[in-house]
């Protein structure tokens, strides 16, 4: 094997709902190196969260992993038992969620919830764990940690709660932190604070981060690499600069054009992506973005394009990049 911290190969995960099979992950391959920040960008239902959850073995019923291999830090997630997974979660990999209010337990104090993780994964005594919790609160920039430890989640503001979530996630110094829309529920000024804190802690503790978001602004200033997902597929992946300055997939281009820039001089019309998001119960055959793509060709509606490598780090799945292949197939069909 290679020495990537995370290695997802051809993962397929489906939700078997009463209405039919939803292919949440449709042949997803991704990797994360140690100490790297990977951004996963996509809209709701694109499979960005499911990708990350599957890494922690959090694929609850009716979701089922039906293909592919997931490797993390030397573990083969597919064959791990629940017991082994539990040992790994919170210790080697942790997660912070979008809404810090619903992910903290309202009936336990902050101190209780931080020490719980420490007591579970280390053989520290209660007193030592409490001391560690105090350190952690200081680390995430919370004033008066002594007092905060005795408070309940409802006594803290949204930004403060998210800091507590980060403290809990970092309690055992994990190798990988998964941040699922960590700033979406927060106010603009607090968003920037929390992102800054995460990047700061990354430098100090050297962990890798998977940052899941729908906001291109969040990934622009924080990530080393970005994967763009659409309808359960990674449609483009590259370094942050490659994605922003030389996007190659029509969906990525569309996303970049559809957000207004505050520094624009004249008032330009926004260029929206037409159409509606994919119905995941009845996804189109071929490229899932084809029905909304303005350069859609015949083949796009029939067949999913393979990846084209644009550089060592940049690849994208679009027939336009595959003109040669496309023309050849056209000849074969005609002749």
């Amino acid at each position: 094997m290679n020495d990537n911290l995370v290695d997802i190969r051809n993962a397929r995960l489906s939700f078997f709902t009463p209405a039919g099979e939803v292919k949440a992950l449709n042949d997803v391959s991704l990797f994360v190196r140690e100490g790297e920040v990977l951004g996963i960008v996509g809209e709701s239902g694109s499979g960005k969260s499911v990708t990350a959850y599957s890494l922690m073995g959090l694929t609850a019923h009716p979701g089922r992993l039906i293909g592919g291999d997931l490797h993390f830090n030397g573990h083969h997630i597919n064959i791990m038992t629940e017991r082994e997974l539990r040992k790994m979660r919170g210790n080697e990999v942790s997660i912070i969620f979008q809404d810090p209010m619903t992910s903290l337990n309202p009936v336990y104090t902050i101190g209780n919830q931080i020490t719980e993780v420490i007591l579970l994964h280390t053989d520290k005594t209660k007193k030592e764990a409490y001391e560690r919790a105090r350190e952690l609160l200081q680390l995430v920039g919370i004033n008066e940690p002594e007092r905060r430890l005795k408070q309940y989640p409802h006594e803290l503001s949204g930004g403060m709660r998210q800091r507590v979530m980060i403290a809990i996630a970092l309690a055992c110094e994990p190798k990988l932190l998964i941040a699922d829309e960590p700033t979406t529920a927060l106010d603009v000024t607090i968003q920037a604070q929390i992102l800054e804190l995460m990047m700061d802690l990354k430098k100090k503790l050297g962990m890798a981060i998977i940052l899941i978001t729908h906001d291109l602004g969040v990934v622009a200033g924080t990530c080393d690499r970005i994967a763009v997902m659409y309808a359960g597929k990674v449609v483009e992946c590259g370094s942050t600069d490659e994605i922003f300055y030389s996007p190659s997939h029509e969906y990525t281009k569309g996303l970049l054009q559809s957000v207004p820039n505050i520094y624009e001089k004249e008032r330009k019309k926004l260029v929206p992506i037409e159409g509606a998001p994919v119905d995941m119960l009845n996804p189109p055959a071929g490229c899932p973005f084809a029905p909304r793509c303005h350069s859609c060709m015949k083949i796009c509606l029939k067949q999913m394009p393979g990846y084209t490598n644009l550089s060592d780090t940049h690849y994208s799945a679009c027939w336009l990049l595959d003109k040669a292949k496309f023309e050849k197939e056209g000849e074969a069909r005609n002749g």
Binding site: V188, T189, Q191, A192, L195, D215, L216, G217, V218, A220, G221, T240, D241, F244, Y245, L256, V259, N261, I262, Y263
Partner: peptide, 12 residues
């Protein structure tokens, strides 16, 4: 204004 997350890595 300074807290706006601009979708532009250089500017960010």
């Amino acid at each position: 204004i300074s807290a706006i997350l601009v979708a532009d890595p250089m500017a960010a």
